[in-house]
Design a protein around this nucleic acid. Structure first.
Lengths: 327, 327
DNA sequence: CTGAAAGCGCTTACAG
DNA sequence: CTGAAAGCGCTTACAG
């Protein structure tokens, strides 16, 4: 592997000069610059990143820690972050926290040890790291410690879903929230509820019932069955909105078990737009999380962290598919 | 951040000695070693990995390039590789090739530039990298260039599925292969066919029909419909085995459209055991790819690449669920 | 068994 | 505008 020294020799300049053209330092005169670039070309020179890292104390790598890369939502995020990083010729180092606060800390520390130039964490805990660092850290989707959060505008997204259902004529609606110990779950619920309440009038009242579950399939199926079986026929909701696609898909399953037609007898809406959402029968109406924008914003934050470290809410988009229809 | 120098000073030894205890070099005498370890503890010393990388020309990082981390199969692999790497306190650097041969090369190069200690690639092309390197490279699941391949034993796995169907009493079987331009698809098909042929006797013949499609949902649905609709009733297979879960799920969908009961009227088996396989109705019988073993073997290869570089076939496991039953 | 020292390949003040 | 040189924090022959 040729080094900067080889390039310097070949171009007949000092290593300092080579380094300066590498750094796109404009002070190098054109003719010299050209000679250096030619030499780099001829030798197929690639800078040794470790050496650079040692000097600058930072490397062109963004650390990313997610609870579990196997979760399609995080995978989407990871992919978009990788693409965004690539645009700036940065790589990404991936770590899973396996939903464990301790592991999460360890992983972040390991990343910092490796002199990454920033870390993006989709938190599983609200923990903070004690170790002081001036490496920018940003939370994605779920807040980590006191670091700025980039996330979908859950509140507004849920409002939009509520509106969609309302416009379809639904006046008996059930909402299945996620675990309310989680901020995301609360925000989504608040958005939904507030919109429904604003829409409900004495003349045209909306009957909204609330449930709380986990974000997963089973919870959706269980709650779906409960709502559909136990609520007296006359009061049974004509639409169920869930705080996650997984829950919504669970509801779909319970509806099928009970021989209810979706969207004929019941409209179902989710949140997230995971891949599966467009694969189930019927395809799920949902709020798409803006993966690209989320990733782009998070990566931006890393690079522009010089400035303020503030939260960013990114707007999602309602994707209307087959699981919702007019009453 | 304390450096090795600080530790040496505090312990009253030379930096060489500190470095040696860091390297678990047994030549350091017990009392000194203890003093050094105490000093490291007190200062909360963490070695500067960039400096180490510069010296040793290698860093505790494994590069991983997959076609698309969003594909649940690759995500599973990535997760297990990360866990396996963590066991040896290595991190993993992730890159997506987006199914593009050019990007794949670029990504591998970028990884090599970063002095990773090995790279695992789930190939999208059979391309090879021109750049000579002594960094071990291993192909996972799909072969890359001439690098050793770690993969599920597709041949044997398919045989097991064939056997499962046979034991259930099926004698009219359709097999939907993947694109036969792909080695995986060929191996799976060959395994299935060979086992069926071995099992078929004059006294108890098996009627096997073969189809070829893509590995995806749509292809499965299309072929499923074709088989179920166009084959004369008397000859209609009682079981369809697909080369992938996605295809199998497509078949499931076509069966539902045609009002056929699975497994009452038709048994369906897949291959891979993606998450969705246990989520569909009915839950899919399939061959589970051994993610943990695959990841462990690949990582092993990186570390023991000193020796031979040979292929490894890892055995999968039949997961019997609800989509297959006795005729 | 341990220390002193060279050197990995860069970047960046400091001169000129 | 460019060069000479120091130094980032380690590891590892080389002595002793």
């Amino acid at each position: 592997m040729p080094t900067i020294k080889d390039v310097a020799k070949r171009a007949g300049v000092s290593v300092g000069t080579v380094s300066r053209v590498l750094a796109k330092n404009e002070t190098v005169k054109q003719p010299l610059k050209l000679r250096v670039q030619a030499a780099m070309e001829e030798l197929d020179y690639k800078p040794n990143l470790a050496a650079r890292a040692l000097r600058t104390n930072s490397i062109d790598v963004i650390g990313l820690v997610v609870p579990d890369i196997t979760n399609p939502f995080f995978a989407q995020l990871a992919k978009n972050i990788e693409m965004e990083a690539a645009k700036r010729s940065h790589s990404v180092m991936l770590a899973n926290s396996h939903d464990d606060a301790e592991t999460e800390k360890t992983q972040i520390s390991a990343l910092l040890d490796r002199s990454v130039c920033g870390v993006i964490v989709v938190a599983t805990s609200d923990g903070k790291i004690e170790r002081g660092t001036d490496v920018p850290i940003v939370s994605l989707d779920r807040r980590f410690g006191e670091y700025p959060l980039v996330a979908t505008d859950h509140f507004n997204g849920s409002q939009t879903i509520a509106e969609h259902l309302y416009n379809l004529g639904h006046r008996k609606i059930a909402y299945i929230a996620g675990p309310l110990s989680m901020e995301v779950a609360r925000r989504r619920k608040e958005g939904f509820v507030s919109r429904i309440e604003a829409l409900s009038t004495d003349a045209d009242p909306i009957d909204l019932s609330l449930y709380e579950g986990q974000f997963d399939y089973d919870s959706g199926e269980e709650l779906g069955r409960f709502i559909l079986e136990n609520v007296p026929r006359s009061n049974r909701p004509t639409a169920i909105a869930a705080a996650s696609d997984q829950q919504a898909i669970g509801v779909l399953r319970s509806a099928r078990d009970l021989k209810l037609d979706v969207p004929g007898d019941l409209s179902v809406a989710g949140f997230d737009d995971i891949t599966l959402a467009s694969l189930v029968v019927p395809r799920l109406t949902t709020l798409r999380q803006p993966f690209e924008a989320l990733a782009a914003t998070a990566v931006d934050q890393i690079f522009e962290s010089a400035g303020k470290a503030e939260d960013h809410a990114v707007a999602g988009e309602v994707i209307v598919r087959e699981s919702t229809a007019a009453v």
